[in-house]
Design a protein around this nucleic acid. Structure first.
Lengths: 112, 112
DNA sequence: ACATACATTGTAACAAAACTACAATTAATG
DNA sequence: CATTAATTGTAGTTTTGTTACAATGTATGT
């Protein structure tokens, strides 16, 4: 198998990527947002973790971490939390769509 | 910004992907390999976690989880652990390279 | 069969990470 | 300065992960 084919089949394995969910401590290190603050945003309904549907400890997927990063950026720029959340909500919609589309593609390729 | 540009800039953010490291329990759920067995493989030097370089608790990145998945597949096919490890080592080399290449690309694009 | 190396599994006692549910503090705004 | 928004602190508890022992299973050669 050529390196290029490998690349296409392998990068990215969206099904695996979906399952790569990280703990709140890790998210905090990645984003530089304190765990306490992450929980607070979640409490306000701005972000979501796996806790809401399963289990007892929060786990965040790729898109959630990305969302936290975006919100933090806007906060640092002077936005209020609600304004930042609203703006990011809009951006995430595009990202989510693209993500789903690629996940679908990779699923098609594996089943053809 | 068009959805397509978004897609290119956003999917995939390799720098973020690199940092998405998951705990051993999560890996176990994803791969269906018991935590005890994962630690054993690590003890044998077949796989690696962040524990070897930092911290006290094991964290596994995307490529490590992929490696575990590949090894498990071969084991289920009847390979011995060492044989499976050797074979996977070879495959992972290609995957690692492709990964680094793409990470480099995405880094270039963000700085041009 | 049985010795040998390979591979996995069990678990007790302990440490680290994450949880909730309170409350306190610190901006920002009318 | 009262009010809402946003963040932060923390005690006590639960969950998850750790090591370091040992035991058990499985395959191979003789």
């Amino acid at each position: 198998m050529s390196s290029n084919e490998e690349l296409k089949n392998m990068l990215i394995d969206f099904h695996l990527l979906r399952k790569l969910v990280v703990g709140i401590g890790e998210v905090s290190e990645i984003t530089h947002v304190p765990t306490r603050q992450i929980r607070y945003w979640e409490e306000k309904g701005i972000i979501h973790s796996s806790k809401e549907t399963e289990g007892t400890t929060r786990k965040y997927d790729y898109l959630s971490v990305k969302k936290i990063l975006l919100i933090k950026e806007l906060l640092d720029d002077g936005y209020t939390l609600d304004a930042a959340a609203k703006k990011v909500e809009h951006r995430m919609k595009n990202i989510d769509e693209a993500f789903m589309k690629l996940a679908q593609q990779s699923s098609d390729e594996n089943n053809k």
